[in-house]
Design a protein around this nucleic acid. Structure first.
Lengths: 136, 136
DNA sequence: ATACAATGATACAATTAGTACAATTAAAGG
DNA sequence: CCTTTAATTGTACTAATTGTATCATTGTAT
C-alpha cells in the first residue's frame, strides 16, 4: 500500500504543542488534497522517528484525529485516512484550516499594533508579488 | 536543544528584588545579542538552582517577561525567547516586521492551495471580526 | 505593631517520554 | 494446508519534566 511521505515541519518554539501541530498539519494536507481518503499514514513509530519526537506524541495526534473520524487507526494494521470522508467535510476542513491560519496572522498583526488598513494593504501587496512570481 | 547557560549575577544586597534583577539581566542579554530569538532559556528549576533561589522567583521573572511578550513559557515544554517580538522596535523595523509576517502567512496559505480570492476574503472576514471584538 | 512586598513551600496541571502489552499480519515448519 | 512463531503496529499505563497557582513565611518600612 502506498504509504505517504507526509513531510511535516514542526516548530518547537511556537507555543503550540507538538501533537497539536501534527493534527493541524495532517488536516491541512487533507484539506489541500495532499492526502486523500484511503491513504495510509506513516506508522506512529516511523513518523515519530522522522520528526524526532516520542512515538506516543504521534499516537496522541492520531488518537485525536481518530476521534474526529478523520482517520482510522487499527491496532496491528496501521493508520488510514477515512474512506468515506464526505465532500462537505473535506470542504469544511479546508475552510477551517485557512480560517485558523488567517486568525493567527491577523491577531498577531493587530497585537503588534498595526492598523486594519496597514494589514489589508500589506496582504494585497504580498498576494500581488506571489502572483507575479508564479506567472513568471 | 541548545540551552543557553545564562550567567546571571545577582546582588542580594542591592535592594533590587531578585526577580527584577533576573528580568533586567535577561533583557540586557537580549539587547546585546547574548540571547537570540528562539533560544531556549534554562528551566525555572535549573536556573533557580544555579542562582540558589526558589524556582518560584525565577517563575515570577519569567512570567513578567512572558507578559511583555519577550519570552514564551510553555507548561511541560520550556521557555523560549519569542521569535517575533516587536512592540518595542523602531518604527522603521516595524514595517519590515509586518511585511515579514505577512509574507510568511501568504506564502503558507498559497502553499496550502488556497486562491488569492479566498485568502483576501478570509483576511477581510478576520479583520472585521477582530474589529467587532475590540469595539464590543 | 501593622502592612506590604518579596520569597519560599507545596500541590497541581500540561506535555512528552518510557515500558509493557495486545492485535494483526506474515513467514516458517511440519 | 495448518499451526506456530516472529515481526509490525497501535494501546494503555506510568514516569519524568516543565510551568502554574495558592498560600505561608520573612523582612522591612511606617
Amino acid at each position: 500500500m502506498a504509504e505517504k511521505k507526509l513531510s511535516l515541519h514542526l516548530d518547537f518554539h511556537s507555543g503550540l504543542p507538538i501533537y497539536t501541530q501534527i493534527v493541524n498539519q495532517i488536516q491541512n494536507q487533507l484539506a489541500n488534497g495532499t492526502l486523500m481518503p484511503g491513504d495510509q499514514l506513516p506508522t506512529v513509530r516511523a513518523l515519530a522517528q522522522e520528526l524526532r519526537v516520542n512515538f506516543n506524541t504521534v499516537a496522541r495526534a492520531y488518537r485525536i484525529l481518530d476521534e474526529a473520524r478523520i482517520i482510522s487507526t487499527q491496532q496491528g494494521r496501521g493508520t488510514y485516512i477515512t474512506e468515506i470522508l464526505l465532500p462537505y467535510v473535506a470542504e469544511k476542513l479546508r475552510d477551517e484550516s485557512l480560517a485558523a491560519l488567517t486568525k493567527r496572522y491577523v491577531d498577531e498583526a493587530i497585537r503588534l499594533g498595526f492598523s486594519e488598513r496597514e494589514i489589508s494593504q500589506m496582504v494585497r501587496d504580498n498576494l500581488k508579488s506571489a502572483k507575479e512570481a508564479k506567472d513568471k
